[in-house]
């Protein structure tokens, strides 16, 4: 089974259970509609990073206190700031579908999340390929809100990537990304090749999360 379908089922709460034909039909339909409405875009920039004596992480003007991010970036002296979005068309599709059929709406929502993850994985792989030529390797991507990496870092991160201008990604006053199907992340660049470079979920400390793989 395609990974993004498996992921969509996971978001829908199926866990390892098999879904029925009608749910599969909804999933197929949802991916078809998403294909029409999604305008995936991404932006990434490489920055130097350093650490203060008390373990804070410095990236440009960002001064971050986060043990989980710190652990994730152990041994790195550069990072990639990454932003990606599926665009506002997907939000409209979800709103529109919610008005006419909630079963379809939850499936579109789950499929959009799966599509976004797939897109981020692809972007990350291609960034990683470039760096590999220089014998540099990517760590799993780590987003504001994971572990103790405070969500408020979303703001400077998006400013440093100029997300509004480059990919049309903005943030509300309560740090929610708009369009909603979007991701921002810090990806460590390490001279040592280790661990799975793509998947983000395992890197998260929130072990009681209902959606953990």
């Amino acid at each position: 089974m395609e990974k993004k379908i498996r992921e969509a089922l996971r978001y829908l709460g199926y866990g390892r259970n098999a879904a029925d034909d009608r749910t599969y039909a909804l999933i197929e339909d949802a991916f078809a509609n998403l294909k029409k409405e999604a305008g995936p875009r991404s932006v990434s920039r490489i920055f130097d990073m350093s650490r203060t004596e008390d373990g804070r992480i410095l990236i440009g003007k960002m001064n971050i206190e986060s043990r989980s991010l710190s652990r994730n970036l152990a041994g790195c002296s550069q990072i990639v700031l990454f932003g990606a979005t599926l665009g506002a068309g997907v939000d409209r599709l979800i709103t529109r579908t919610s008005l006419t059929d909630m079963a379809k709406a939850v499936v579109v929502q789950a499929c959009a999340a799966a599509l976004l993850e797939e897109y981020c994985d692809e972007c990350q792989l291609s960034i990683g390929e470039e760096l590999r030529k220089e014998h540099l390797y990517l760590r799993p991507r780590f987003s504001p809100g994971y572990g103790d990496f405070d969500i408020s870092y979303q703001e400077p991160l998006m400013r440093m990537l100029d997300c509004a201008k480059t990919i049309g990604l903005t943030m509300t006053d309560s740090y929610m990304m708009t369009p909603t199907k979007s991701v921002t992340a810090v990806i460590g660049i390490s001279p040592v090749e280790d661990r799975c470079p793509v998947e983000g979920c395992e890197a998260c400390d929130k072990t009681d999360c209902a959606y953990r793989r």
Partner: peptide
């Protein structure tokens, strides 16, 4: 009980 999942629950609701 975990034998019916969210999309099915909502299909029935609709």
């Amino acid at each position: 009980k975990g034998t019916v999942f969210l999309p099915q629950l909502l299909m029935s609701a609709e």
